[in-house]
Design a protein around this nucleic acid. Structure first.
Lengths: 143, 143
DNA sequence: TTTCCTGCAAAAGCTTTGCAAGTAC
DNA sequence: GTACTTGCAAAGCTTTTGCAGGAAA
């Protein structure tokens, strides 16, 4: 992911392309860890000492609202963010970490859910389903 | 749900049965809304003016740890709790409410996931899967 | 040049914790 | 009687907000 590409993505999603937003998005897109706002803040601040944590939060909210990232709710502690907005399953470990389920397994999980079932749910509940998250709760064998 | 039954459940799960814990569990078990700690606090306090919010939090943590309730992580605002610990799907609306997917549909969603697939994930990731949550993200048509 | 964004600090909201008194077992 | 729980207040952590200055379009 280049800065140029990030700038383009921001604009394509209707956001102003500021250096700060590019920085946050680059930091988010360049890791597979699901970092929280504070961790992203530290990452960006290493290169841009002027960065503000409030700006990280504001940016993440803008990114999520425009569909450029997902906010993963976390039962314990701070929310975590993911630049991969495709549907994929997460594993939440006993100690609160969130890790991706490998793509092939994740795809198997998602493709097990029939679109016709989703449509039936939409009809029954009267809502448009925008997305579906599958979250596995796991206990690490050593814990 | 009677108080006697609540007392029994608490003991069966290795917890001391205090009036406060019974109150919180009764409040949680008697609603299908997924209330947050503060809402449960208000509910209990209506009858037990001495109740403390800290005790509600402590109790919910104890209940969740012992398997008597689930803590539902919430992207925006406070965590919500559910006395129904069976696997069932949730729908998160655009405005942050969490509602149950009707049981038959929820069961269809869960039964779509093959146990063999779960076992393969356990093998590949080296973890024991304790549970699986399916969360639908929905946009209410009127919003 | 207009509108939106940033940075700072302060506030707000959610949750946990220390401790003395009280309660379950 | 012992160990755990409660209630209160205070602290801790995460997130949002007000506002003046600055940058994007």
């Amino acid at each position: 992911m280049t800065r140029q590409k990030a700038k383009q993505l921001l604009r394509d999603h209707g956001l102003r392309a500021t250096r700060q937003r590019e920085d946050v998005y680059l930091a988010l897109a360049s890791t597979k860890l699901h970092k929280c706002a504070d961790e992203l803040f530290e990452t960006v601040r290493a290169n841009q000492p002027g960065m503000s944590l409030a700006t990280v939060y504001n940016t993440l909210e803008a990114l999520a609202a425009s569909g450029l990232c997902r906010r993963l709710p976390n039962a314990t502690g701070a929310s975590r963010y993911d630049a991969d907005v495709s549907e994929h399953a997460h594993l939440v470990t006993a100690d609160g970490r969130v890790v991706d389920v490998p793509m092939d397994l994740s795809n198997q999980l998602h493709s097990a859910i029939e679109p016709t079932l989703i449509r039936e749910i939409e009809k029954r509940l009267g809502v448009k389903i925008n997305g579906l998250s599958i979250e596995l709760r796991g206990a690490d064998p050593r814990s």
